[in-house]
């Protein structure tokens, strides 16, 4: 049976994995707490820009927590981080550029329609 294929492990490796176990557990508690905070603060009557910034910061912390510890970037070679960051930076740049490019028009038409000719010429 598959269970009989278990390999012997060194004590050091077991200690290392146990450390990871507690890291994962603590991280998951932190992630749940942050999600709870996110859920609560949207109802708090404070400055809206402060709320928006708080949401961005909290979700960024969650994002980094997952990719750094759960996805093992902390323990892997830097190449993995670099490869992922290339895609992430391109994606973030694309989203930012598009969000800045398109603005709401009170008449209902996307402002890009009026911007395009000036961009092209």
């Amino acid at each position: 049976m598959a269970e009989t294929q278990q390999k012997p492990v060194t004590p050091d490796y077991v200690v290392e994995e146990h450390k990871k176990y507690f890291t994962f557990f603590n991280l998951s508690i932190a992630l749940i707490a942050i999600t709870g905070i996110e859920l609560v603060i949207i109802y708090v009557p404070v400055n809206r820009w402060f709320l928006f910034t708080s949401l961005m910061v909290l979700s960024t912390v969650k994002f980094i927590g997952v990719i750094w510890w759960f996805m093992h970037l902390r323990w892997d070679r830097a190449l993995c981080t670099i490869v992922f960051l290339i895609g992430l930076i391109l994606a973030t740049g694309t989203v930012t550029a598009l969000m800045l490019l398109f603005r709401r028009d009170p008449d209902g038409a996307p402002e890009i329609m009026t911007l395009l000719p000036s961009l092209l010429w």
Binding site: C80, V83, F84, I86, G87, L88, L90
Partner: peptide
């Protein structure tokens, strides 16, 4: 990791 980087752009 390369696939996930490309998927970042897809979801972006």
């Amino acid at each position: 990791w390369a696939f996930l980087a490309s998927d970042c752009m897809f979801f972006g």
